[in-house]
Write a protein that binds this DNA or RNA. Structure first.
Length: 405
DNA sequence: TCTGGGGTCCTAGGACCC
DNA sequence: TCTGGGGTCCTAGGACCC
């Protein structure tokens, strides 16, 4: 039985590289991409910036302290999304066995198509060439007999690298690697493992798999197998629709102004409604949450009739908010539609059967499409500081890859 | 020192039923 | 009122990813 072949394609400093590509004067310079012109948090940075110690999540002000000439660029989600879509299409043409892992990462299984390609190197260089010709961007590729090792491999030679981990050499790579280099091991699992004397992957041999599975269930088992180079997980096909769609906003710590809190809920509701409508989704379960000092307090609210209407959603938020004392200090809010489903019927905006607010929403949406978001908005939201630009999340899928129902 | 925003998956345990 | 046993559904919340 021949072994499987997986590759993991990872775009190098994706957003920052796109900025450097589109603005050549940024080439060779330390670039930090932030959420909008005045975003305080660094989403990602160019390799030149990383050389100074710039890291994702760092505040831009702290970044400037270690890298005075750091160039700040507002993120352009639309451009990144379009670029990603083209790249994923290229990959899909190489092999239909694809799992799009995030906006800039994908797994491909080449086991079947090796009959056509003969040499693994031919495929790898073909991918790199096609992406470079199309997008003027570079990627790193990891090749191995399992997904987790392929992902691990793609990180080893960056940028623009190729790393092949096979059955003969995987111990050399894996054994001395810190346990948290594995995808799936973060602070929680890591501290548990450290507590049991596991610091690098080879230490895992000393730990019975049952200890991990008792504590972390199936994920624990999977991590144990990964550390031993025995991960058997295949590609996970893309969903037909997302499992949730939502927005949240971090507030100034301990915000008590109910006016401000409602305003943020209104904005989140609007954003969510707009996004639902754009993809023709609606939902009848909403997760509303506020974070107080002690942590999150969330509630799932079920309504009778599924909706994508901003007023409906906002009203759900308001009734939840009413459960709290007026003076509760709030740190963060969240509005999420769970299990959104495609609307059954095409809405005719001229039909008399549609209620007014739906027609209005449709009209607003058309304006937003033409002139950009929030050309028209409720008076309460004019000139306010609660907005933040849209962000691309890992679950985001290039258009065309998420099959519509 | 948890920075911001948007997701997924999994599990323990309570509610409810016979 | 808890005695026994067994099953399902749902929820809250933890952990992780980019």
């Amino acid at each position: 039985m021949s072994e499987k072949i997986f590759i993991h394609v990872d775009m190098n400093a994706f957003f920052a590289s796109i900025e450097q590509r589109d603005y050549p004067k940024l080439l060779g310079k330390p670039v930090a991409v932030t959420n909008g012109e005045h975003g305080s948090c660094i989403i990602t940075s160019s390799y030149e910036a990383r050389a100074f110690g710039i890291k994702t999540g760092m505040r831009i002000s702290d970044g400037r302290k270690i890298c005075p000439y750091l160039v700040q660029r507002p993120s352009r989600p639309k451009v990144y999304a379009e670029t990603s879509t083209r790249i994923m299409n290229i990959l899909h043409n190489i092999s239909p066995d694809i799992q799009i892992y995030s906006v800039d990462e994908a797994f491909l299984e080449l086991t079947n198509c090796m009959k056509i390609y003969k040499e693994i190197n031919h495929v790898i260089y073909k991918i790199k060439d096609l992406i470079y010709e199309s997008e003027n961007l570079k990627c790193s590729i990891g090749i191995s007999f399992s997904k987790s090792l392929a992902k691990y491999a793609s990180k080893i030679n960056k940028p623009d690298g190729i790393t092949y981990i096979n059955k003969n050499n995987y111990h050399e790579y894996l054994d001395n690697s810190p346990i948290d280099t594995l995808c799936g091991v973060s602070t929680g699992v890591k501290s548990f493992l450290n507590h049991h004397g596991v610091y690098k992957c080879s230490d895992m041999k000393k730990l019975p798999i049952s200890i991990l599975s008792n504590r972390f269930g199936n994920i624990g088992k999977k991590i144990w197998l990964m550390a031993n180079g025995n991960d058997f997980e295949g590609l996970i096909p893309d969903l037909n629709h997302p499992k949730s769609l939502g927005h949240g906003k971090v507030l100034k710590p301990n915000t008590k102004s109910s006016y401000l809190i409602k305003k943020v809920f209104l904005r989140m509701s609007n954003k969510l409604a707009l996004r639902l409508r754009k993809s023709n989704y609606e939902s009848n379960i909403f997760l509303i949450g506020i974070k107080i000092k002690a942590g999150w307090i969330q509630k799932k609210v079920k309504i009778e009739k599924a909706t994508c209407n901003r007023n409906d959603i906002f009203n759900i938020c308001l009734s939840y908010l009413n459960l709290f004392e007026k003076n509760t200090g709030i740190y963060q809010v969240q509005v999420t539609a769970l299990n959104p489903l495609k609307k059954n019927t095409q809405m005719d905006i001229f039909s008399k059967d549609n209620d007014k607010s739906e027609v209005l929403d449709q009209a607003l949406e058309n304006i937003h499409d033409k002139f950009g978001p929030e050309t028209i908005k409720p008076a309460r939201l004019i000139s306010d500081d609660t907005d933040s630009p849209d962000v691309i999340a890992p679950a985001w899928r290039p258009s065309g890859h998420r099959k519509s129902v």
